[in-house]
Design a protein around this nucleic acid. Structure first.
Lengths: 200, 200
DNA sequence: TTTGCGCTTGACAATTTTGTCAAACATAAA
DNA sequence: TTTATGTTTGACAAAATTGTCAAGCGCAAA
């Protein structure tokens, strides 16, 4: 968008509000009117700044995907040893998850949209994963991690990290836990995950 | 609904189609027209059999929640040893996930709806989880499972089982995998999970 | 102050989605 | 063949959501 020149506070406010309703409150079929009300602005401004509802949502989605990629790269390119890499990744995830717990879920629900598949630079991904997988295999050789296909290890790790957050309503309800109780459980996840993954 | 008397094939077809679009294809904001088209019926029939869109969706949602509860109870009430219990649960999950991979995700996105919170018989849940948690602690004492809070063990287990399925689009895209490749990975999940959870 | 430019607003139109209803249809019983 | 009951349909109405537009507003520069 090249419309805004001096005052883009409204522009940012709309995006921020849309993200909040989508990624934090999980209201995936929120209307433009609801976004406008939550932002305390006139609904027409959404069309003024973003042309259409779809354009706004597309922007927010792309932004979310880029954040995911950024996180993914971070874990590989840092020169920390494996354990510290994973710890950093966990901290980073929980930090973002506190703000936007449903970001990944929303991305999944929008994955059919073709516009989302263009991003992944395949060569880049290949290099990323291969580098990280080698590090994992090396760590398995050393006996610090149980031997398995690296991709399976990553799936285990990502799963244990993300699912208790993104399915919190279902899980909290299933075990009949109060907010505080579930918060405490989440606060212990980092340690639990690390202990589950590393043998020593 | 007490409307249908002789012919409830249409009634069931509508539910089946709605479930397919919601839980299998993940189109969470599908319209009644789209459901009708997919089912090859007139849209008005949805109102005829279910009164309103909301009523249909509510029915499908309740049904999904009940299936979840059924699965949860199954794992506790069977008199199998822990390992076999978990194995049975894994098999059962994958069997249903092949049909409806997004069922849990949809439930999560609808958790704000008050109607969903009425179901959980709290005493029942308490008894279920306490019984199962005791079994887990016993298994930890025997050294077959790493010691941790039982709830954390369950979270680990559920996470490793569900997330690779319900976030398949995101993960498959992230690692740039073809359908067949990801299918193979999923096929190995059972063994991977069991090896990750049990020490021997 | 006046002018210009971007921002904001309310009213309106267009579109999409949902709900209603009377009539047509199918089929089995009388 | 009628009759009755339940099913299906298309047309219409209602509601909700989105998009457009001209006019008004705020504020800085001339």
């Amino acid at each position: 968008m090249s419309i805004q020149k001096k005052d883009d506070v409204t522009y940012e406010l709309i995006i921020k509000t849309a993200k909040r309703l989508l990624f934090k409150e999980g209201r995936f079929n929120v209307t433009t009117q609801e976004i406008a009300d939550a932002a305390g602005i006139n609904r027409t401004l959404i069309n003024y700044y973003f042309r259409s509802r779809d354009a706004l949502f597309e922007l927010v989605l792309q932004n979310a995907v880029e954040e995911e990629e950024k996180r993914r790269e971070m874990i590989v390119f840092s020169n920390l040893p494996i354990r510290e890499k994973l710890e950093t990744f966990i901290d980073y995830y929980f930090e973002q998850a506190k703000k936007y717990p449903y970001r990944e879920v929303y991305i999944v629900t929008q994955m059919n949209s073709e516009s989302i598949c263009k991003l992944n630079n395949k060569d880049h991904i290949k290099r990323l994963t291969e580098k990280f997988f080698l590090e994992l295999e090396h760590e398995m050789e050393k006996g610090n991690i149980q031997k398995m296909e690296p991709i399976q290890f990553v799936l285990n790790f990502i799963s244990m990290l993300i699912l208790p957050v993104c399915m919190r309503p279902l899980l909290q309800n299933s075990f009949d836990l109060a907010d505080e109780g579930y918060d405490n459980i989440l606060a212990n996840r980092k340690e639990v995950i690390l202990k589950s993954i590393f043998k020593n």
